[in-house]
Amino acid sequence: MKKIIALAEHRQGELRDITWEVLSKGRQLAEGMGAEVEVALLGKGVKKLAEALKPKANRVLLVEDDRLEAFNSETYQKVLTQLITERKPSLTLIGHTAMGMDIAPALAVQLKMPLATDCIGVDVAGESFALTRQLYGGKVNAAVSFRKNGPYMITLRSGGFPVVEKEAFPGEIVSIPSPLTDEGLAKRFLQYVEAAVGEVDITQADVLVSVGRGIKEAENIPLVKELADMLGGALSCSRPVVDKKWLPKDRQVGTSGKTVKPKVYVAIGISGAFQHVAGMKGAGTVIAINKDPKAPIFSVANYGIVADLFKFVPVLKEKLKELKKS
């Protein structure tokens, strides 16, 4: 029987959300192909995680080894190369995450397998797949196809696919012997480093005023900071502001920063790249100010204002002062 293998992602003892997303999409594709879906779980002492995965797939392929305690693309690649070569799935699904980006391109080269990365849409198309990706930071979508015959590998955008609840599989856990030996590795995992705690915890704020690339210069940050203060809220930002060192990392909202759920989120000069939206889509009400009417932020915001922030924010501050008094 045809099969799809999805790779489980876990870190510090917990399965990551992407695992359920990849499995849910894997199951949907498997149904369309008349295939089975299997999930590969690599780790040390992860039987509990295997039990949690069992209802979500026809089979959990469990590879346990002390050397798999933390993710390392080198050990993962050795294990997955053997697993995929032996089990011959038609499709291997991996999340386009920090882990997936470190393993999938190398694994695909080694297995001589066509790879499509960071897909936001995957549909069965005969013996192949029709894919949707994004170009130019999400300004444009692209329909993409494979040029060669399978088996294929696809990485899925994190948060890009819903987790659909379906009837549980009876499931089974199949232990697979690890092919790893004590042979030295060219890459060694040393440790995790937790994010530094800042003076303000933006995840606890009821009101966030968030600033993006549109602010143009570090000198302009106070313009937005004052607005945040007036609203009794905290100041947060998107990635480019942190990259440029205009605000510290603990203020960053998004995939590589914080996930926030304020009652009100005011996005100023933020285009709304997917990585940012992933961190703020749980906000109660989103008000976006951007000069580009096509900015993706307007498709997630509740209220939109097309304006030059340098002109509009001062007007807004004046008005707030005036109306707060009355």
């Binding site: 933390a70 060219a186 060694r188 995790y192 480093v193 994010a195 995939t255 920063g257 914080k258």
Partner: peptide, 11 residues
């Protein structure tokens, strides 16, 4: 990595 976490690797 995600969520502000980093990993240290020797290569």
């Amino acid at each position: 990595l995600e969520g502000g976490l980093e990993e240290v690797v020797e290569v």
